[in-house]
């Protein structure tokens, strides 16, 4: 129990951060028109690709002779990058189509 409290105490800053970020996410998203649901989901999908930063940190920590870690870490980097790059490119392609119309009308 005491360790639990200690853990919370040590990470108080992060916990504040966490709660505020949750509220911010709710705030940012509300009032979005239905037409943007798909691009928004896709854009949000790309943003959680930030997990690739974690994969890079894992790789930086890994000792060079620990092949198991290196291989798994490498896979994680590839997958995380796929998430980021694929996500942003797909979103951009969707939004590109919205872009054209103001010129026309």
């Amino acid at each position: 129990m005491e360790q639990l409290l200690n853990y919370i105490g040590e990470n108080m800053e992060m916990i504040y951060f966490l709660i505020l970020a949750i509220l911010l996410g709710v705030e940012v998203i509300s009032n979005v028109p239905a037409i943007l649901h798909t691009p928004l989901m896709s854009g949000a999908n790309a943003i959680h690709g930030v997990v690739v930063v974690g994969a890079i940190i894992v790789m930086l920590h890994a000792s060079p002779d620990n092949y198991a870690s290196l291989i798994v870490g490498f896979l994680a980097v590839v997958m995380g990058t796929l998430n980021v790059v694929g996500g942003f490119v797909v979103t951009d392609r969707m939004l590109e189509m919205f872009k054209k119309k103001p010129k026309k009308s």
Binding site: A21, I22, V28, M41, A44, I47, H48, V51, V53
Partner: peptide, 13 residues
Amino acid sequence: AMLTGGILVGSAG
């Protein structure tokens, strides 16, 4: 950065 990105998407999603 990971925390913001992740949580934002978590709650917004």
